[in-house]
Every structure is written in structure tokens, then in C-alpha cells.
Design a protein around this nucleic acid. Structure first.
Length: 808
RNA sequence: GCGAGUAUGGCGGAACUGGCAGACGCACCAGAUUUAGGUUCUGGCGGAGAGAUCCAUGCAGGUUCAAUUCCUGUUACUCGCACCA
């Protein structure tokens, strides 16, 4: 048995193409639904078996919504700038644009072979000048709003990619992409002020429907904390301000620590008697890569500044100042007050340098043995006017005192830092600004957009850390749009995240050459109703795109504050671990455990692949790819195909199957909405088992099964629909409804427990009342035998479920 | 270290607001069809026991007539963040 899936699938794919079946019309009178999946990076390896999982999931939602009468936008495109393409181009001496074009073609044909209902007329590509014109245009809006600025700063530098990385791109001290060593370099970089939006990015999470774990990750990344800034005067006369979340412990501050990069050190250079040792420590800290810094987490190091001391504003006591690399210049003020009794890091440092540890919060163990950091239970001591207060009370009181005495102020801080926005690479959007000696950085006029990439001899990045564009005189030298004098172009390009930070807007109106998208289109389609993507993009793409969107909202360019109403995520598909038999691991080319979707489509068909990707397990969790599991899904479709022989006349549901039909409609309808595709499929498999047991099904039964299965397996269901001679085509039908009242059977089996153990069963009418159930249960001979001569302590009846009799 | 999450047969996984643990699929076993392999169909399939029964949802307790589900403690693993003051 089996069916000719190859012929059927190509037939319907052709049909859908020719009939523009999935084209989203700009018919603004219909209810809309915008379903979005992350557009892929078209790598040279082609589609990975993991790609179809989220795509099929949202395809199911999109197809269901169409059957429910929505005007559905389900688009696809290419996030095509990026390093692998550039590296491939360098190695093979082919222009990256050509590499991209070839990869896109391959990806597109692979996606098409899966029967995904994308609107290909809205396809976009971030490397297309007609697209990145608007990426550049948004950058200029940011620039004009003061949110893009250039700054000399300490950046993460990947020694292997030879490129600057954003903080988000450094994972465990190494490059996220290549695993290469990351070191610090001082470079002049374009920065985007995402920190201006920190509070909004945090607050508006309350207004969207994201998985809670996604919200938590974003909140942690933004890292808001409330505390106080405290001004310490110094014996040098300058004021040194610290940030602390524990101002209540101010009386316990026994020393201060400032970051090795803190600018005040230079100011004090002639006052410090040990400046040589200080400089040596600074140099050592600068040499350390992020990896070294995380590795040497154990032993605290530092140097005491000899010659300048700080004065604790609360008691006038003089305390020493140290520099140490455990204090970061990029957070707070780059300086801390150290309270070793109540902070683990300060405690460790104090032990190394033998500094005094003064207890100011009572309630823990001996602070000489370990820091007591619990805020909830402690009581203030050794703190004069704070004594006897709880930590929370003391925080309030000390802040009042600081404010009243001009020694400090309440302060909110965020871990989020500004976004490093330049890359020294060829294959990215050129940053459309020029530098003029007279005018400084000047934006290109809109009429000069898009600023295209020039052709170059070599795409090789340079060891000096300059972009490949920097060697191209004809590109660099230009005139200032402001004064007409000579000017030089920026040669850095944008990071890959730029193009994906607004692509969902372009889908609304992808061919517009006047605006990034028309107001009407944005008003109608935005926000995205449901966006599914990987967990790995939670702190990168998701945060960046929310930031851009909020900026565009403030500029009056988009109609909503948040781009995505709902965000869900999927688990990875794992392959067999070649080193540990029976275990599963991430698929990778080097491990040789990669499964190619083309092979699966060829052997089993797209419908089977789609079904298996959805059946493999909990959508949110990682799932192992098991060849045998696919066979089960193929078998199921073969059996559905064979049903056509068992259909008997009748448009109504057959009596035997009526309740099951209604139950299945309910379950499948609900499960699609909650991403429980595996149980939706299991329910349909169960229905099929019932149909086979019944021996036949009516035309009405079959039609409903085909509609329910259509979003999962669109080709075979469409073909069967046609073979059976139903009216029209399946994708133009209505989603089926169920009747709650008809989901129930006439009678139900009741379990009878004695002392919580099942001892008997009987059939009772549906919704039989409690008294009746208890009576029926007690009349059963098995139960009589067990209860005879014993005292019945309690009887519990749960309608339609069970009866429990407690005896002694 | 902090935060989030997970733990159920040989495997992937089901189980609503506490109510018959193991749906559905895979693998496996037996039988039928087939010249044979494959396919297909029928039945079985958590463990122990001849059996009535007993034991089973990481582990140890608790609440309850009843716990995979709730509570306390604990272990292992996964993911995220990581000297953020």
C-alpha cells in the first residue's frame, strides 16, 4: 500500500503557486492575522532538519486561521548579511551577493517542497538595496534623534573573526559564532542608545503575551536595580560617587574599590606614591580577555592607592581606596563602597587584604567567617540612627538622610548597556554617514540612500581591525552634504541584527519605494499576532527589535508600542550522539549526525515530515530525531489514504462516531492554539483507530477528518478531498465546529474503589447523580463482598468518574 | 553563585481546576497473509507472582477518602545570567 506522495505533493504545490492561494490581500475590511516565524540565514549548508519545526507549527496556525475566515499574513524572507557568506566568498573568490543568491535559491526550493503556506510575493532579503535603504534610513532617524553616537570605547574583539562583538555576542568569554578568543580593544564605535529605552522595554513586557521564561530572560538582561548613589569626599578633595543597592550598610563600609579604568586615577597620579604598581595592575587588567576574567573568579586581586583616602559621609571615618578588576567601569559609577560583612565579593577581598569587617546587620552567622547577605531577616546594629531597624526600613531612612544632607540620592541602574553597532566587515549595510573636519559626523541626505556596497578586490578583514572598505579610496573620499567640503565615509558596516530589527514591518508593504511601509498597511497588519522563534534570540534579536520598534513608535512611524503580541519558542531537534550510543545531542556537521530534510521528503514525503516534526514531542522542548518515529507517521497517512475505500454515503456524522468526531474537533482545535501539536495528532490517530474498528465512515465523517488534518498534512488531504468529489478545494472551506453537548457518550464506565483501590467497574448513564452512583456501586457483588460486616466510614462519588468507599 | 525549568515503561511522550497512571506512536513478542524479505492485518506488551494480589511517576516525608498533580526537604540533569555592587 501507500500513496504516490511525490506526484501529489508537487501537483498541489504547483496548484497553490498558480492560484496564489496563500497571497495575503491588502483587503483592510477583513479580520487580519499576522503569523510570523524568524526568517533564516541562508547558509551554504541548506535547510537544517530543525528549521521545519517552527515553520510547520506556524503554518498549521496560519492554515487554521485561513479556514476560520481570517486574512492571514504569513511571510518569509532572508536574513542574508553575515560572516559565513563573507568567509565563503573570501575563500572561493566569489562575490558574496552571488553566494547569497545561490543559497537563497536552494533554501527557497527546499521550503517550497515542504508545502509551507508562505506568501512568496512578499519575500524580502536584507541584502537587497531596496530593503537596506530603509535599514539605513532608520539608522539616520536614530542618528538625528541622538540615539546613535560614536564613542571611543573598550570593545569585545574576536581574534578569529577579526570583528567587534556586542556584549550579547560574547558567550562564556568567547565568540558566540566561532568560539574564538575575545579580547578587549579600545576602538571608536557606533553605539545605539538602547539604554534610553530600558525602562520601557521592561514595563511593556506586562502588556504582551510572551512565554514567562522569555519575559524573565529579558528582565534579567535589562537588570533593573534600585539603590542609591553616595558621595564620598576624599583627602584629595575630589568627590568619589559610588552606587549601591545596600545603602543601609553604609556604616559597615571599611574601604572603597574603584575600577582599574576609572578616570579619577589619572587625576590623582601625582598624589599617589605607588603609581607604578597602579599602572602595572591597570595594564594587566587590560590584557585580560573576558575568558581570563571569568576564569579567575576565585582569588581577588587589587592594589591599594597610597596617598588618597576616602571619607565615609555618615561617620566621617577615613577609609582606604583600592583598585580591583572585580569592579566594572561599565556599571554604576565604576566605584563601590565595600561592606565586607554583608557582600560576598567584598568579604573575599577583605580577607585577601586583611581589612576590617564590621557587622551592621545582625541575624546571621559570624561575619568573620562568611558574609551575611540576607536582607529579609536582619536587624541593623553598629549604625547609630539606623540601629534596631529592619534592612528595608533602614534603606528608606538612610536614603532620606543622604538626600537631606546632600550626600547622595536615590538611583535606579540597569545592567543593559548601549548596543555596539559597528562591524569591521564588508558584507553588511554601510553606515550612511560621513566625517567632515568642519562639521563632524554628518548624515547622508535621504536622496542618497541606499548607500550601496562598492565592489572591492578583497573582502578580507584587516589585522589592524579596519573594515575592508577602509582601503578603498574611491569609496571613502566624498564631499560633506552639509558644507560641501571634503569628507570621508564611514567604512564600518552594521551588525547582522540591523536588518532583522524591523523586517516584520516591511512584510506589510514590501515593494513600497516611498516609505518603509505605508501607514495603511502598518495600521492594518501590525502588530504581529503570533511570533515564534528560538530561545537563543531572546536577549538579542527580540530585545533589539523591540527597541527599534519603540523608537519608531515614538517617531510616529508605527501604530503600536510593541511589535509582537505573542511570542512562543520551540525546542531544538537533536541527532544521535556518535560518541555516546543511545544519547542525543545537537546536530552538527563535525559530528556527522546531520539529517537533511530533502532526503526525508524524498523517502517519506513532505506531509510525513511535517507530521513527524509535530508529533516528535513537546513543541517547547528539545526532541530527538528518530528514524523509526517517521515510519509511524507515514503509516498513519497511508491508513488515512486507505479510508477512501471505506466511505459510505451520508453527509451527517455516523452514529457510531458522532461523539468521537465532536471530541476530536474540540481537542485538535484547542491543541493547535496551545502548541500541543503532538496530542492533536495523537487524537486524530485515535479517531482513525476507532474508524477502523467501526469498519466504515460516512462522507461527512471523512470530510471533517480531512479538514482537521489539512493544516498538518496539506497535500494528501487536498488530494483526498478532490478524489472524494467534495465541493471546491479544501483550503477554501470552513474550519469545523463542535458541539460540547455532543462530545459526550450516552454512558460512561465508573470505577469503584474501596479504600482508594479500584475493585470493580460498572456502566452508568452519563451525568448520573451521586446518590444513584453510590447505590449502584454498593449493589455490585464484588463490593458487597468487600464491605460486608464492615463499617462504611465515608462514601465519595465523583460523577462520570468513580466512587470511593471507605470502610473500617 | 543567582534565576528559570525538567525528572513518568525498553524509547519519544499522554494524563482537565487532585479522581481508574502509561493515551498516541516507536521498538519488541505471538499469530495470519506472502515463495521469501519488506508491507499489511489481528492480538499482547510497566515490574513481581501460578494466583488472589502486591509494587510502581528521581529520592524522603507530609496533607487527603484519593497525589504524576498540592506542601516541605533532597538529589540529578537542562537552559539562561554570571564579580552588575
Amino acid at each position: 500500500m501507500g500513496y504516490d506522495f511525490t506526484a501529489i505533493e508537487s501537483k498541489w504545490q504547483k496548484y497553490w503557486d498558480e492560484h496564489r492561494t496563500f497571497h495575503a490581500e491588502n483587503d483592510y475590511t477583513k479580520p487580519k492575522f499576522y503569523a510570523l516565524v524568524e526568517f533564516p540565514y541562508p547558509s551554504g549548508q541548506g535547510l537544517h532538519i530543525g528549521h521545519p519545526r517552527p515553520y510547520t507549527a506556524m503554518d498549521i496556525v496560519a492554515r487554521k486561521r485561513r479556514l476560520q475566515g481570517y486574512n492571514v499574513l504569513f511571510p518569509m524572507g532572508w536574513d542574508a548579511f553575515g560572516l559565513p557568506t563573507e568567509n565563503f566568498a573570501i575563500k572561493n573568490k566569489i562575490h558574496p551577493a552571488i553566494v547569497t543568491k545561490n543559497n537563497v535559491e536552494r533554501f527557497k526550493s527546499q521550503l517550497k517542497s515542504l508545502g509551507l503556506s508562505f506568501d512568496w510575493e512578499r519575500e524580502i532579503n536584507t541584502t537587497d538595496p531596496d530593503y537596506f535603504k530603509w535599514t539605513q534610513w532608520i539608522f539616520l532617524r536614530l542618528f538625528k534623534a541622538g540615539l546613535a553616537y560614536k564613542k571611543e570605547m573598550n570593545v569585545n574583539w574576536c581574534t578569529s573573526c577579526k570583528v567587534v562583538l556586542a556584549n550579547e555576542e560574547v558567550v562564556n568569554g568567547v565568540c558566540e559564532r566561532c568560539g574564538g578568543e575575545v579580547v578587549h580593544k579600545v576602538k571608536s564605535q557606533w553605539m545605539l542608545k538602547i539604554t534610553d529605552y530600558a525602562q520601557k522595554l521592561l514595563d511593556d513586557l506586562d502588556s504582551v503575551d510572551y512565554f514567562e521564561k522569555i519575559k524573565t530572560a529579558q528582565r534579567n538582561w535589562i537588570g533593573r536595580s534600585t539603590g542609591a548613589e553616595v558621595d564620598f569626599t576624599t583627602t584629595a578633595g575630589d568627590i568619589l560617587t559610588v552606587y549601591t543597592t545596600r545603602p543601609d550598610t553604609l556604616f559597615g563600609a571599611t574601604y572603597m574599590v574603584i575600577s582599574p579604568e576609572h578616570p579619577i586615577i589619572e587625576k590623582w597620579a601625582d598624589k599617589l606614591s605607588n603609581m607604578d604598581a597602579v599602572r602595572e595592575y591597570q595594564a594587566a587588567a587590560a590584557r585580560k580577555s573576558d575568558f581570563d576574567r571569568t576564569e579567575m573568579n576565585k582569588e581577588k586581586t587589587g592594589v591599594k592607592l597610597e596617598g588618597v583616602r576616602a571619607i565615609n559621609p555618615v561617620n566621617g571615618r577615613e577609609i582606604p581606596i583600592f583598585i580591583s578588576d572585580y569592579v566594572l567601569m561599565t556599571y554604576g559609577t565604576g566605584a563601590i563602597m565595600a561592606v565586607p560583612a554583608h557582600d560576598t565579593r567584598d568579604w573575599e577581598f577583605a580577607k585577601v587584604f586583611n581589612l576590617p569587617i564590621i557587622e551592621v546587620v545582625k541575624g546571621g552567622e559570624d561575619v568573620q567567617k562568611a558574609a551575611f547577605t540576607d536582607c529579609a531577616t536582619g536587624v541593623m546594629v553598629n549604625s547609630e540612627f539606623l540601629d534596631g531597624l529592619s534592612v528595608e526600613e533602614a534603606k528608606v531612612k538612610i536614603k532620606e538622610w543622604l538626600t537631606a544632607n546632600g550626600k547622595g540620592r536615590e538611583k535606579v541602574n540597569y545592567k543593559l548597556r548601549d548596543w555596539v553597532f559597528s562591524r569591521q566587515r564588508y558584507w553588511g549595510e554601510p553606515i550612511p554617514v560621513v566625517y567632515c573636519e568642519k562639521c563632524g559626523w554628518v548624515a547622508l541626505p535621504e536622496s542618497e540612500l541606499p548607500l550601496k556596497l562598492p565592489d572591492v578586490e578583497s573582502y578580507m578583514p584587516t589585522d589592524t581591525g579596519e573594515s575592508p572598505l577602509s582601503t578603498l579610496e574611491s569609496f571613502i573620499n566624498t564631499t560633506c552634504p552639509n558644507c560641501g567640503g571634503p569628507a570621508k565615509r564611514e567604512t564600518d558596516t552594521m551588525p547582522q541584527w540591523a536588518g532583522s530589527s524591523w523586517y516584520f514591518l516591511r512584510y506589510c508593504d514590501p515593494k513600497n519605494d516611498k516609505e518603509l511601509a505605508s501607514k495603511e498597511a502598518l495600521d492594518y497588519w501590525m502588530p504581529v499576532d503570533w511570533y515564534n522563534g528560538g530561545m537563543e534570540h531572546t536577549t538579542l534579536h527580540l530585545l533589539y527589535s523591540r527597541f527599534w520598534h519603540k523608537f519608531l513608535y515614538d517617531e510616529g512611524l508605527v501604530p503600536c508600542k510593541e511589535p509582537y503580541m505573542k511570542r512562543t519558542s520551540h525546542g531544538m531537534i537533536l541527532g544521535k550522539d556518535p560518541e555516546r550510543p543511545g544519547e542525543f545531542t545537537k546536530m552538527s556537521k563535525s559530528k556527522g549526525n546531520v539529517v537533511n530534510p530533502d532526503d526525508v521528503v524524498k523517502e517519506f514525503g513532505a506531509d510525513t515530515l511535517r507530521l513527524y516534526e509535530m508529533f516528535v514531542g513537546d513543541f517547547e522542548k528539545a526532541a530527538p530525531w528518530q528514524e523509526n518515529g517517521i515510519k509511524g507517521c507515514k503509516r498513519f497517512l497511508d491508513r488515512v489514504w486507505a479510508l477512501q475505500e471505506k466511505v459510505v454515503p451520508g453527509d451527517e456524522y455516523s452514529d457510531k462516531l458522532r461523539a468521537s468526531m465532536h471530541k476530536t474537533i474540540k481537542k485538535v482545535s484547542e491543541d493547535i492554539e496551545t502548541l500541543k501539536f503532538n496530542t492533536a495528532i495523537a487524537t486524530m490517530m485515535g479517531l482513525l483507530n476507532e474508524i477502523d474498528a467501526a469498519g466504515s465512515l460516512s462522507r461527512g465523517d471523512f470530510r471533517t477528518l480531512l479538514i482537521l488534518l489539512n493544516p498538518f498534512a496539506p497535500h494528501i488531504t487536498e488530494e483526498l478531498y478532490q478524489i472524494m468529489g467534495y465541493e471546491g478545494v479544501l483550503n477554501e472551506q470552513k474550519w469545523v465546529e463542535y458541539d460540547e453537548a455532543l462530545c459526550v457518550e450516552d454512558s460512561v464506565e465508573i470505577a469503584v474503589q474501596v479504600n482508594g483501590k479500584v475493585k470493580a467497574r460498572f456502566n452508568a448513564p452519563m451525568n448520573c447523580d451521586k446518590e444513584e452512583l453510590e447505590k449502584l456501586a454498593l449493589d455490585l457483588p464484588e463490593i458487597k463482598a468487600l464491605t460486608d460486616g464492615k463499617t462504611i466510614v465515608k462514601k465519595i462519588a465523583v460523577p462520570n468518574k468513580l466512587v470511593n468507599i471507605v470502610v473500617k
